[in-house]
Computed example of a mutant assay.
Amino acid sequence: MKIIAGPEDLTPAWLTEVLNTRIDRVDLEPVGTGQIGSCFRVTLTGEAPARLIAKLPAADPAARALLGGAYRTELLFYREIAETVTIRTPHCHHAAIDPETSNFVLLLEDLSPAAQGDQLTGCSPRQAHTCMRALAGLHGPRWCDETLLAIDGLHHNTETDASTLAEVYAPAVETFIDRFADRLHPADRDTLRRTTETIGPWLLARPERFGLVHGDYRLDNLLFPPDDTTATTVDWQTLTIGLPARDLSYFLATSLTTEDRRTHERDLVARYHDALLTHGVTDYPLGLCWDDYRFALLQAPLITVLGCAYGTPTERGDAMFLTMATRACTTIRDLDTLN
């Protein structure tokens, strides 16, 4: 079956073949920012779901080659992992990739009128509680599941990764500080520089607790229905194996305002912990969960700084990264993570 390369290939004939149902007409509407690929809302006329979301590679062939690993990881999630966890994700109707060219296509459930979270505004405490339950649905079902280590293509960090990260992260921090020199508080500059001292060993620490880590679990990658009773997680390109609390820390440190995080974080960590227990997680007391949360907070500046360094600069993107860094550094100081 042909693996398409661009939106022009989303034809009625191709969709009829992959969906195994008659499609008479296709209408496309771009959605999202498309920084590492392209997304389209596909409206279908025929005997199929009325609308789908199509994810396709970046238009630039050079970018496709660089991003091939991220594309393969997302397809791996939908093909092999999504059905083994309970976190809400879009239903996948079709997933295919060409290993030679990194051309890929995902046809996913369209979840509208669910709305994307807003990283700048931050989420409500109610939404945060929903996200804690959802996150436990990723971590709990395969908590310390050694079969994860045998999945080809699912990355588990090594000593080499830790050394490489230590080399790359410190210059990226200085680039971030220079970029936001007139807007970054001196205390935040100091906190960011201090995170570079331990980032390599941190990546590999606490290996006795491991599981699936989304890697970028934040509001921009979550969709909420009008009543906020569920949260659907998207963008699985950064999926790895590691300390599960990295997702917990990253979300709470960057996706709530500082005031809301200070007020609600203990309740939210307890909510996450309670939900883990319902998935059969044992020998993980709440006190240890809280300690993992404090320890894992370096995930927040790490992903923020690297995302800024390698992402396409935009006005909103700059505002988002600065907001995330400010919230993350404040959390690290509040909880004395670096001491």
Rank of each mutant, 00 (worst) to 15 (best):
residue 174 E to W: 08
residue 144 C to H: 09
residue 145 D to P: 01
residue 155 H to E: 15
residue 156 H to M: 06
residue 166 A to V: 04
residue 151 I to C: 06
residue 163 S to R: 03
residue 172 A to D: 15
residue 173 V to C: 11
residue 150 A to K: 10
residue 169 Y to L: 02
residue 172 A to S: 12
residue 160 T to D: 14
residue 167 E to P: 00
residue 153 G to T: 08
residue 145 D to M: 05
residue 172 A to T: 12
residue 147 T to V: 11
residue 170 A to G: 06
residue 167 E to Y: 05
residue 168 V to N: 10
residue 163 S to H: 09
residue 156 H to C: 11
residue 148 L to D: 14
residue 167 E to I: 02
residue 165 L to E: 12
residue 160 T to W: 11
residue 152 D to Y: 05
residue 151 I to E: 15
residue 162 A to F: 10
residue 171 P to C: 04
residue 165 L to K: 03
residue 164 T to S: 05
residue 170 A to F: 13
residue 138 L to H: 08
residue 153 G to W: 14
residue 147 T to D: 15
residue 158 T to G: 06
residue 160 T to Q: 10
residue 144 C to D: 13
residue 152 D to V: 03
residue 146 E to A: 08
residue 153 G to F: 12
residue 174 E to K: 04
residue 155 H to Q: 08
residue 161 D to F: 11
residue 153 G to D: 13
residue 138 L to F: 14
residue 172 A to Q: 13
residue 170 A to E: 15
residue 159 E to W: 06
residue 164 T to P: 01
residue 142 R to D: 01
residue 148 L to E: 15
residue 169 Y to A: 01
residue 158 T to E: 15
residue 144 C to A: 11
residue 147 T to A: 11
residue 143 W to Q: 01
residue 149 L to W: 14
residue 156 H to L: 05
residue 152 D to K: 00
residue 138 L to G: 00
residue 155 H to A: 10
residue 155 H to K: 03
residue 147 T to C: 09
residue 142 R to G: 01
residue 153 G to C: 06
residue 173 V to G: 08
residue 162 A to G: 03
residue 159 E to A: 03
residue 143 W to Y: 13
residue 141 P to M: 06
residue 142 R to I: 02
residue 152 D to N: 05
residue 170 A to P: 07
residue 162 A to L: 04
residue 163 S to G: 09
residue 159 E to D: 13
residue 165 L to T: 12
residue 157 N to K: 03
residue 158 T to M: 04
residue 151 I to S: 11
residue 173 V to Q: 11
residue 174 E to L: 05
residue 162 A to N: 09
residue 138 L to M: 12
residue 162 A to C: 02
residue 156 H to N: 13
residue 148 L to V: 09
residue 152 D to A: 06
residue 157 N to T: 10
residue 168 V to A: 09
residue 147 T to I: 07
residue 138 L to T: 01
residue 158 T to F: 10
